[in-house]
Computed example of a mutant assay.
Amino acid sequence: MPLDHTPPLNSLGFAKAPADTRVVVAMSGGVDSSVVAAMLAEEGYDVVGVTLQLYDHGAALAKKGACCAGIDIHDARRVAEDMGFPHYVLDYENVFKDAVIDEFADSYLGGATPVPCIRCNERVKFKDLLETAKDLEADCMATGHYIQRMMGENGAELHAAADANRDQSYFLFSTTPEQLDYLRFPLGHLPSKDATRALAEKYGLRVANKPDSMDICFVPDGDYASVIRKLRPEAADPGNIVDHEGTVLAKHDGVINYTIGQRRGLGIGGLAEPLYVVRLDPDRKEVVVGPKHMLATRTVPIKEVNWLGDEPFNSRSEWHVSVRVRSTRPPTDAILRPLSETTAEVELMVAEEGVSPGQACVFYDPDSSRIFGGGWIHRG
């Protein structure tokens, strides 16, 4: 019987020594991606760090002297210097503006509530950056996302992170099977963010105690309206706040200042029951309000479906899944009915409030941690 001289798989799943395995690490300058880079460098991998310059805070905020992501780039570069691997900064500002920022502004003006982080992963990080990694002859690309890649009978599968509080599956549902083959997520199995920070301390990283960024990167102060007002000045046009029958109740100073489900700040008093924003009509410059029950939705139209199941999406008339219709909501039981290869209708078993066009609807296996993909909620 011949001896099998195939080397064992390394921690990234390749049958060769770490030193012979090149991995590009997408480095944001934060603690998560810095730990990934340091961990792989210590394990002996041929690490190449890449940081994307995506936006200019000064341009986004129209402020003199605003930071242009320089601190994050500096932090990423210092980690690379300390751990002894090369680091590159790529200027993707034009790509990012065309693929992410412009759509963010337009969809907000269209009355939707966009999630630009998903589009950034889909159109920039896991597309252009991934191609750059291949140009650098890397075997794979690693990121600091909290999600798990597991090998199943039919290849790589996407699974939720071990720490439900850090899970980023909602933002990564559009990862394609081809991208999943090439990507690695070394932090997805960790039990908590504390464990990540402990690793940063172990590797002596100066970013070990750097606070997490909670805002959208090009909206650093959380003020969406001011960014959109600069990009699309017409967004601040005044209009009427009306009820579902069209009766004018108040005036507003721009639909961009309102979101589906909002109750506070409507300037409508003296009513028997509180009113909520149930719809935005940018063409008519109207904010439509109604009682809370009008927010409840059971049928959700989905477009741009990305399917990660083993069987073809259209092979069944319906799939019993769990879905998440907002990043802050837990998955809920639903029936997923394919209408075409990329469109579907989701029937929620229990009505959800505040389901908004522009948000993602992510599909989960109700019996495991696996993600079956997802799509974008639209008006139908």
Rank of each mutant, 00 (worst) to 15 (best):
D181P: 02
I241H: 11
E157R: 12
I371K: 03
F218Q: 06
L183Y: 03
L9D: 11
S322V: 01
T299Q: 08
R316K: 15
C361L: 02
I335E: 15
Y108Q: 09
S107C: 03
V35L: 12
C140M: 11
T247Y: 09
I256W: 03
A272L: 06
V25A: 09
V248H: 13
L180H: 15
V325H: 05
V79N: 09
Q359Y: 10
N306V: 12
F171Q: 13
A360W: 00
E81P: 06
A80L: 01
P331C: 05
I268H: 13
F171M: 07
P116V: 15
D310A: 12
L180D: 15
L187Y: 02
A76W: 12
V325M: 04
C361R: 05
H145E: 05
G65I: 04
S327E: 07
N314E: 08
F126A: 06
P291M: 03
P357I: 10
I302A: 14
M214I: 11
V278Y: 06
V300E: 04
M151D: 12
R329D: 14
D333V: 00
D75R: 15
G373L: 04
V289R: 00
D365N: 11
M151F: 05
H378Q: 03
V50H: 04
L295F: 09
F218L: 08
N257S: 08
V219F: 07
F96I: 02
A296R: 11
G380V: 02
R229K: 05
N121L: 02
P18F: 09
G270P: 10
A272H: 08
M83G: 00
V305M: 07
H189V: 01
F185D: 08
I302K: 10
T247A: 12
E318S: 15
H74W: 13
